[in-house]
């Protein structure tokens, strides 16, 4: 295990308290809504925010009492924070210089890193003349130039526009795979998190609410926040064999669960009917349309009732069923797409 930490930061109206372990070469992503404490956790690891309690163990060294400049870390900041008065090359050479390399050595190393990032021709350019994607690569090169054992990235894709983001995201994934230390990345974007992480740690209100591989978390969310991120309807109920009771409803599910359980299904597994359908399918109830919005090529309909549910239907269906807010509607969910798992 490379990084093992317990991070507690107490603020007047907020407490961050999380345990974090990251293996060699592993990329762990802290995912959470704004204000959840992700960036505070990252700053604590970097030594920029003091710990109230806890420890940070990196390869057997306790580093929590060392100031930032004496920790073997590299940080890629949100907005990158490249020094505006230095060229790209001197930005990257800054770290090695501080670690005692001669000017020539530091520049040689910086040049190699910029070459690897495909930025050879930009070495003499000032940061303000770099594009967002280029600036991000310079920032990554600058962080890697000090040969850190722990790489920290704070919203590394947030400053990019949607178009370049796609390209830079997969490129960043490739570069992070090449790094053999521990990596902790912070993001509030579920897609960034899914693509970049080996393991996800979801934080809400300063504590870990769920942890696991991206696939695991996408399939079995455990909080409303995560369910919304991965686009699933999620309910907590009481399992009883192949049924999970949620309030007055009983969902028939694929899996058998007994005791406290979650039920999750995608909005596309929900079908809507003007009148009670014949043959009375299971998982059927009546609700009232609360709102309608565009969602990709489909229309997402929010329905209130015994439980609130989101359904994805085609624009044609909206016209055909005359779906308008306030209308009473029958909701049916396919049992084959309804997953249940212990809470």
């Amino acid at each position: 295990m490379t990084l093992s930490a317990r991070i507690v930061v107490q603020r007047p109206s907020f407490r961050l308290d999380l345990d974090l372990t990251v293996g060699r070469g592993e990329v762990v992503t802290l995912l959470g809504p704004n204000g959840a404490g992700k960036t505070t956790a990252l700053r604590a690891l970097a030594g920029l925010t003091p710990l109230t309690e806890g420890w940070i163990d990196l390869d057997g060294d306790r580093i929590e009492r060392r100031p930032a400049e004496r920790r073997p870390i590299g940080v890629v900041f949100q907005d990158y924070l490249l020094f505006p008065h230095l060229s790209a090359l001197d930005n990257v050479a800054f770290g090695p210089r501080c670690h005692g390399a001669s000017k020539a050595e530091a520049r040689l190393k910086a040049r190699e890193l910029l070459d690897r990032m495909g930025l050879s021709e930009f070495s003499s350019v000032r940061p303000r003349r770099l594009s967002g994607g280029q600036a991000q690569r310079v920032a990554l090169a600058r962080a890697l130039a000090v040969e850190p054992r722990l790489l920290l990235l704070d919203e590394p894709l947030a400053a990019l526009d949607a178009h370049t983001r796609l390209e830079i995201r997969s490129e960043l994934r490739r570069r992070l795979t090449g790094f053999d230390g521990a990596t902790v990345l912070v993001t509030h974007d579920p897609l960034d998190a899914m693509v970049l992480a080996d393991r996800l740690v979801v934080i809400e209100n300063g504590t870990v609410v769920q942890e696991g591989s991206p696939a695991e978390i996408a399939r079995r969310p455990r909080t409303d926040y995560v369910a919304r991120l991965v686009g699933l309807n999620l309910y907590r109920g009481e399992g009883d064999g192949d049924r999970v009771r949620v309030g007055d409803l009983a969902f028939t599910t694929e899996e058998h669960v007994t005791g406290p359980a979650f039920v999750a299904f995608p909005p596309r597994a929900v079908a809507l009917y003007r009148a009670r359908p014949d043959g009375s399918p299971r998982n059927l109830w009546e609700g009232r349309i609360d709102g309608i919005e565009r969602h990709g090529d489909n229309i997402r309909v929010h329905i209130d009732g015994p439980v609130a549910v989101a359904a994805d239907v085609t624009p044609a269906a909206v016209a055909e069923l005359d779906l308008t807010p306030g209308r009473e509607i029958w909701v049916a969910v396919k049992a084959t797409e309804t997953h249940a798992y212990p809470a």
Partner: peptide
């Protein structure tokens, strides 16, 4: 101040 923090993480006294 964030530039100074960035410099500190790079090992600058």
């Amino acid at each position: 101040l964030r530039y100074e923090e960035a410099a500190a993480t790079l090992g600058a006294s």
